Amino acid sequence: MNSRKYNTNPALLLEQGKAIMSSTDESRYLFRVFAVNMVLSGTPASQVGASAGFTKAAVTGWVKTVDEHGFDALRPQRRTGRPSKLSEDQLKEIDAVIQADPRDHDLKVWDGPSLSTYIKTRYGIDIGVRQCQRLFHTLGYSHIRPQPYPKTQGASRIRM
């Protein structure tokens, strides 16, 4: 057991150290390499994982990955997500259409439902309302709608 007297709370230091280990892709990679090296040197995976806040299964998974594919396989992979249903040219055309008057397309305003309908009609691509709202944001538009103000009554109508 460690008998050192700390000036700072050791639990706080441990949390800060964990945050540093997971702050960048490179630091995560280096920590995983270090953890695998500790296991290969004879330290139990459960002890390595417990000291850094990971499970034994995670550490043994890293060891297995290194054994089967080498250390480069521990590098975090970029996840690209689902490809867009709309091409770049279609997005540019949609951007130009949104900047035009919505009445040109028999609409009152451009919003999620109206954009979804327009894309379905124009391109035959079914995109949900929420995704169209995200598309507005991606194209640089904010979610602000014109709001009617209540009519104020003139002073001549107020009787005392």
Rank of each mutant, 00 (worst) to 15 (best):
P113F: 14
D104R: 07
S114M: 10
T43S: 12
R145W: 11
M38A: 10
G112I: 15
V129I: 11
D101V: 13
G128D: 04
Q99F: 00
K120F: 14
P44L: 08
Q77V: 15
P150H: 10
G81T: 01
R32F: 05
I125Y: 10
S51L: 14
P146D: 09
L40R: 13
T55K: 01
G154M: 09
V109G: 07
P150N: 08
R145Q: 14
H69Q: 02
A58D: 06
L139W: 05
E88R: 02
L139H: 01
Q90M: 08
I144C: 03
E68G: 05
A35P: 00
D67G: 07
P148F: 15
R130T: 13
I20K: 11
D72W: 00
L30P: 06
F136Y: 01
R78L: 12
D89A: 01
W110H: 04
T138Q: 15
P146W: 04
D106Q: 09
L135D: 11
L91Q: 02
L115G: 08
S87C: 01
E68R: 09
S156G: 06
L40D: 06
V129T: 13
M38T: 05
L91E: 02
R103S: 13
V36W: 00
V33S: 05
D25K: 15
A57M: 11
T60Y: 00
V36A: 04
V36R: 00
L91S: 03
L91R: 04
D126Q: 11
A96S: 03
K85G: 13
S84C: 14
T138H: 15
E93Q: 03
A52W: 09
S41T: 09
L91T: 02
H105T: 14
A155D: 12
Q47Y: 08
L91N: 00
T152D: 10
R75G: 05
I125F: 08
